[in-house]
Each structure stands twice: as C-alpha cells, then as structure tokens.
Design a protein around this nucleic acid. Structure first.
Lengths: 113, 113
DNA sequence: GTACAACATTCGTATATTCGAATGTACTCG
DNA sequence: CGAGTACATTCGAATATACGAATGTTGTAC
C-alpha cells in the first residue's frame, strides 16, 4: 500500500488550509495580489503572526510572493485553490442546512421516527 | 467583520480533512459504503483509532452511518466532498510538478535567473 | 440468562500547532 | 554612514490533536 505517500501529501495540503487565519488570508487574497500591510489591515491579524502564516502558505506552495522595493506582494499560486475553497464553502453550507433540518424535525416531532 | 464565523466553520471543515488516516478513510469510502471491519482491513488502521476518526468525521457531517444488525455501514455524506478531495489532489500534483521544475532548473542553471 | 462479535468511548501521554514577544533582515532615503 | 519602514524568523508557553490501552455498548445466537 504505497497510497501512504499520496494520503500524506494530501493531508499536508489540507492541514495548510486548516486554520481560520489562513482561510481568512486566502479569502482576502482571492481578489488579487496584495502586500503584507494590506493583508494586515483587511484581516486584522498581527504582523508577526501574519508573517508566520504567510511563510507556511508559501512553504507549501499555496501562495507565492513577489518583492517590489520594500513591499512584498502575495498572491494565490494556483487558481484551483480558490475552486477548492469554494467547494468547501458549498459543502459547509449544505451541511449547516442539513443540521438545521434535523434540528427543526427534532423540535416539531409530528411523525414518529 | 462577521466573516469570522464563516472562516471558522470553513477551517473546521478543513481540519476534519487534514489528517492522513481520515484522508485514507475517505479515499476508501469513495467507492461506496463500507462497514468498519471492511475499512479496517483496507486501511490497516487499528479498530479503536479508526472508530475515533469515524466519530470525528460523523460529528462534522462528512460521513454518515447506517446500522444493520451488528454492522455499521459508513458512507460519504456529500458527493461534493469527493469533488473537493479530487481538486486537492490536482493542486497537490501540480504543486509537485512545479517544485520538480524548480529543482531541475536549479540543477541545470543554463540561463541566468 | 451467557458468550461472542462489531463497534464506540474514555483516559493518559506523546506530539504538533498557534501566537505573542523579542529580535533579525532587506530595502529606501537622506 | 544612520534612521525608518516593511516584513521575517526564533523562542517559549499555552492549547489542540493523535493514538494506544482499557473499558463500554449494542446486537446476535444459543
């Protein structure tokens, strides 16, 4: 079973996305490239911490950086990341709907289960 | 900024996928529903640990369970999970390609950068 | 009822992540 | 050169995750 390597890489990429701050960064970067300062203003993430997350995202190839003078512009490396992001959103919303449905049924137990 | 809740839920779903064992489970379940025993054989994950992961996946609505006698059948709750899974695979492979490209260029530095 | 199989949960520990504080580096301007 | 801005890295402590071992639960058969 050499799928092991496959699943490892797979989960590694998921881990990179598995953090609210990093999701926030991606959600902000989806509109186009942006400097760290701009990201800091939009996301309200403290500078050091923001840099840490950007470093991780960079290391995993999720975003890419471009230096221009004293500024560094970040952008999403692969547009498919955005597709994945949106799919996750859909799954999330549908899951919430479903849970809501279950809750409603529990509150109004007309028919027996 | 109430996107906070959005990004939280978003990353929570990603966290659910951010583990090799759970990826393995999903990769195995994508062919159809399966009992815990079958999953254990295919994935070689110890029973208790497998149950723990399944419990987490169930709690987050990623898989659903159906009991039949003494067996419990698990299946992927939302087909979009599989789409997301495959997108992640694509991103991963393209990222590997790109890294390989960079490595090749580093080994054969003909033209200046 | 007992015995057994299939699966789930709890608990404790090892390991990984996250984040702030401090410090470091790269670049520009004068 | 020094000073200031933009960004990155390191370190340590708090928190979260993963997993094995033991124990529980649920269902079937007898």
């Amino acid at each position: 079973m050499d799928d092991m390597r496959f699943y490892c890489l797979h989960s590694e990429l998921c881990k990179t996305l598995a953090n609210e701050k990093r999701q926030m960064i991606l959600g902000t970067l989806r509109d186009g490239e942006m400097t760290v300062s701009q990201l800091r203003e939009k996301t309200r993430i403290p500078q050091a911490n923001l840099s840490q997350h950007l470093s991780l995202l960079r290391g995993r190839g999720v975003v890419s950086a471009r230096r221009d003078g004293t500024h560094v512009f970040y952008s999403i490396a692969n547009p498919k990341i955005i597709q994945a992001f949106d799919l996750i959103t859909e799954v999330m919303l549908e899951s919430l709907e479903q849970q809501k449905g279950l809750a409603d049924r529990a509150l109004a137990p007309d028919a027996a289960e």
